[in-house]
Design a protein around this nucleic acid. Structure first.
Lengths: 223, 223
DNA sequence: CGTAGTCTTGAGTATCCTCAACGAGGGTGG
DNA sequence: CCACCCTCGTTGAGGATACTCAAGACTACG
């Protein structure tokens, strides 16, 4: 197994998002084991057995795979509050790696969660809701990939990231991932991503503060 | 609500796929109400309240949305055995329409299923597994959209359809949907889809029997 | 037989990818 | 402290790919 290097005993709980049952979250949090990852650390790898479910406590991770021709595709960025690793199969299909230093991941042993879900109605419902959220995240993603031009793809990506980062709308979004990651997420080349960002900036739709903090000035013009 | 026109009392049960608990499936089938749809019938619409879950018994349906610029995007094709309409939200985001005449849809009232899941462990697990399957289907889809060329996209699409239609590998796949549907599914233009299919045929990777039955001759060369 | 919807093919154009070069920042070692 | 290397990000030029517009063939259906 991958995790285990940077174990840490006590850390802040993940942010409670939406109207989930707080008691159910607390219940499963009691089962969580937390790990700190450095940038690039593997959280799980393809062909690993499915033993745990996961959530991001802080930082960010990316779920990816590599095609035969060597191209990498990122299927999902995982942000604080996101649960992942649901599967009814035996083995994984994707790699999940930390994007930032000090990414904190919570792991939940699958048999324990399932045993708990069988008894606690709230937990049962919570697990179902988390899976539903995962589904709607992926559907959003498909719509972003379905945009026609690179400009629209990047714009929709920025809006998605702004929506998913819990900070206030007027604050700039911090894109912790590299331009290469964005390219592999949007199925574009790095150069095209870079050009699109400069373009949006010149058009006055976004403002950059450094390379990675981006403020959305014209939200509607981006989608 | 949309359904109700073409009600039918008794029909064959949906195919049991994989190693799902047959008893759990039988249990929820007892709750199912079946409907027959004609080509183009709306199964549910955006902004409908989330009252039911659904599965396809026979035929095919498409889950779609329309962008502001009028372009339609198909998020998922739903085939016999696929469950859909999972959501923890109040309202829908997508339209689901029948693709073929005589598409049979089973609906399951959400409160009933949830009540049942709370009691029956098998049902509980089944629902979770179905959601997981939905997740993995969407991830596959993202990978297809992430292909570079139109040829690879169409090739991967054909392989996906062949895998999902339960028929034997050597038999041709029947693509019930139109080329327009395929285009909106792959985020390509109709013309490009058509050209790609002709190209694959000339290269000997596929063989057409009519417009809609396609035989995969070189499965590896398509992915 | 005509019509509407679907599918295919062609020609020209816009977009994006590839290859290439360069600048900025961070870390390492002399 | 500075030179060096490495990664990351940006910009430019040229070429490949897919889109748009247009027209024609095929099918189903009245």
């Amino acid at each position: 197994m991958q995790l285990g290097f940077h174990d840490s005993p006590a850390l802040q709980p993940p942010p409670l998002s939406g109207e989930r049952s707080p008691t159910a979250l607390e219940t499963i949090e009691a089962l969580a084991v937390r790990h700190i990852c450095r940038r690039g650390d593997l959280i799980y790898g393809r062909d690993d057995p499915v033993e745990c479910w996961y959530s991001i406590v802080s930082g960010m991770a990316r779920k990816s795979t590599v095609f035969q021709d060597g191209r990498r595709r990122i299927v999902d960025f995982l942000m604080p509050g996101d649960f992942f690793g649901f599967s009814s199969r035996e083995l994984r299909y994707f790699d999940v790696e930390a994007v930032t230093d000090d990414t904190v991941v919570a792991t939940y042993a699958r048999p324990e969660i399932e045993r708990l879900a069988a008894v606690e109605l709230d937990v049962n419902r919570l697990v179902r809701d988390l899976a539903c959220e995962s589904i709607s995240r992926l559907q959003t993603r498909i719509l972003i990939l379905g945009r026609v031009t690179a400009l629209k793809k990047v714009g929709a990506f920025l809006v998605e990231m702004a929506d998913r980062s819990c900070s206030r709308p007027e604050l700039p979004v911090v894109l912790s991932m590299s331009r290469y990651d964005i390219a592999d997420y949007l199925a574009l080349s790095v150069e095209t991503v870079s050009r699109a960002i400069t373009h949006l900036q010149r058009r006055g739709r976004i403002a950059l503060h450094g390379k990675h903090a981006i403020q959305l000035l014209d939200r509607d013009g981006l989608g």
